[in-house]
């Protein structure tokens, strides 16, 4: 099997992802709460629905914030060389992507409120046919990488 790429993304990515996951947990918790409420007040649901929902929510509560970010971070690697960008990600299903530098149309960095809290940024690489992301790089590293890639990609392109 081919060697994985060398660079890792920022370790703070774990914290950022954990925070995101915790915020998103509001949805399953609200749903479970609603199902219990409906069952008690209106006898609206069969008893096992709230129970199943509770179990799922509990598992979600443990796995998504505390395990998945860690596993995800461990797998996430990238490498930028003169000719190409090499990316690896995925927990159970691992994807390794190779993007030839001359095919790159543009690179963007973007940052939402959570990433900005940890001074991180996401790098988006766009070819004419595909879009790829390197999530959660340290801000300055993302900017540097963006400039580097746009420099390297600035070769004479023959038609899309």
């Amino acid at each position: 099997m081919r060697q994985p790429p060398k660079q890792r993304i920022a370790k703070d990515a774990i914290k950022a992802w954990r925070l995101t996951a915790l915020i998103l947990l509001i949805i399953p918790i609200a749903l479970t709460g609603a199902s219990w409420y409906l069952m008690y007040t209106f006898n609206f649901l069969v008893f096992w629905i709230p129970i199943v929902l509770s179990i799922i929510t509990l598992l979600d509560l443990i796995i998504t914030p505390f395990f998945i970010p860690k596993w995800r971070w461990r797998r996430w690697r990238y490498e930028v060389v003169d000719e190409e960008i090499y990316i690896q990600h995925g927990i159970l299903i691992v994807t390794q992507t190779l993007i030839p530098m001359i095919r790159i149309q543009h690179v963007d960095t973007k940052q939402g409120p959570i990433l900005s809290k940890y001074k991180l940024a996401t790098l988006t690489i766009t070819t004419a046919a595909t879009t790829h992301e390197i999530p959660a790089l340290p801000e300055n590293e993302a900017t540097e990488l963006r400039d580097l890639i746009s420099e390297l990609a600035r070769v004479e392109q023959d038609d899309v």
């Binding site: 099997m1 081919r2 995925g90 159970l92 299903i93 691992v94 994807t95 390794q96 992507t97 190779l98 993007i99 030839p100 095919r103 070819t127 004419a128 046919a129 595909t130 790829h132």
Partner: peptide, 23 residues
Amino acid sequence: IQAIEVIHHFLHRKQELASFKVS
């Protein structure tokens, strides 16, 4: 070729298989 991707899960890895995707 715009990009290529190699994708595998744990069974694949055990069997030294991987899916190939070209864009």
